[in-house]
Design a protein around this nucleic acid. Structure first.
Lengths: 155, 155
DNA sequence: ACTTGACCCGATAGTAACTACAGGGTTTGC
DNA sequence: GCAAACCCTGTAGTTACTATCGGGTCAAGT
């Protein structure tokens, strides 16, 4: 099949397939006489594996390593296990940070009612006030963020 | 004060201060004869405001808009309110997605016990199997990720 | 006066995982 | 024989920084 069909079946953009090839996540396919890429079912399976891992928000570097490990059947499975656990810890930490954040934002949102002027906007007051209170900069603030991307399927 | 002092007081890197200036989040300060930047207390306050917003994981574009709005006291506060609410919704959606993700990863982690070979690793089996089951690609998978950065203070 | 180290300057490139062009060639159906 | 839909490579953009380069400046000590 050609790249467009593979992309549709895997639920990704054509560019993404080429990107995965550049990054060494899928094998370069054979080409037609005119240079078009020609994929087989194994490529689709690989794409689906990658997308499933990405839907679990795993970094591509981890996915690449998983692919390498899975082709080397004799090797111990500890590394696979470790990678999943590490990833789980990252996700867990981030979720906790976001829970806190959500509370703070909900509190902020409650400061402001519709219709009044910026001059006496509760949110801005609060933001400015809180920023002043934090002046010392010697206590680390919570960590939010994990370098992840939005991952959605298209039809 | 010079850039290093401002950066330390605001708890950021010197580069970050220059970056904020380039992006128009802080006013370009005056310069010494030799070209060094010279900051006043207003700059520090601005930096703290920005960092506080960032600790709430707001995009810099939103922060920039907040700064613009807050200097225009007569304007209605609805936009401020709307920005915070939108951001809260993003955070809430992401937190929910991460909760699901955490469950899935925990389940995956339970598939594998230490010491055996990749050939019969439960995690890999499960990942490959799940990927196959997802073949249709016509139902959007959960959305995780929001384009956010790790934000931590240094000492 | 000289040196050393800490500080500063601008410019550029790198990060993750894509997405979006630009400027071309190919295939397919009518 | 033509247009639409597909494909190609290469490059640049996204976010919020961080890192490095090659240089200039400043303060203290010798």
């Amino acid at each position: 099949m050609r790249i467009g069909e593979l992309a549709t079946k895997a639920g990704v953009d054509v560019q993404t397939v080429r990107y995965y090839e550049r990054e060494g996540l899928i094998d370069p396919p054979s080409r037609t006489a005119s240079g078009y890429r020609n994929y087989g079912p194994a490529h689709l399976e690989r794409m689906q594996f990658i997308r499933h891992c990405r839907s679990l928000d795993m970094p591509l570097a981890d996915v690449k390593r998983l692919i390498a490990l899975s082709s080397d059947k004799g090797v111990s499975c500890d590394e696979v296990n470790g990678m999943v656990r590490t990833h789980l810890e990252r996700v867990c930490a981030k979720r906790a940070a976001l829970e806190l954040l959500e509370k703070q934002l909900a509190g902020l949102n409650a400061q402001c009612e519709s219709g009044h002027r910026v001059a006496d906007c509760g949110i801005l007051q609060e933001l400015i006030h809180a920023a002043r209170g934090e002046a010392c900069a010697c206590h680390p603030t919570q960590t939010v963020g994990m370098r992840s991307e939005t991952i959605t399927r298209r039809h």
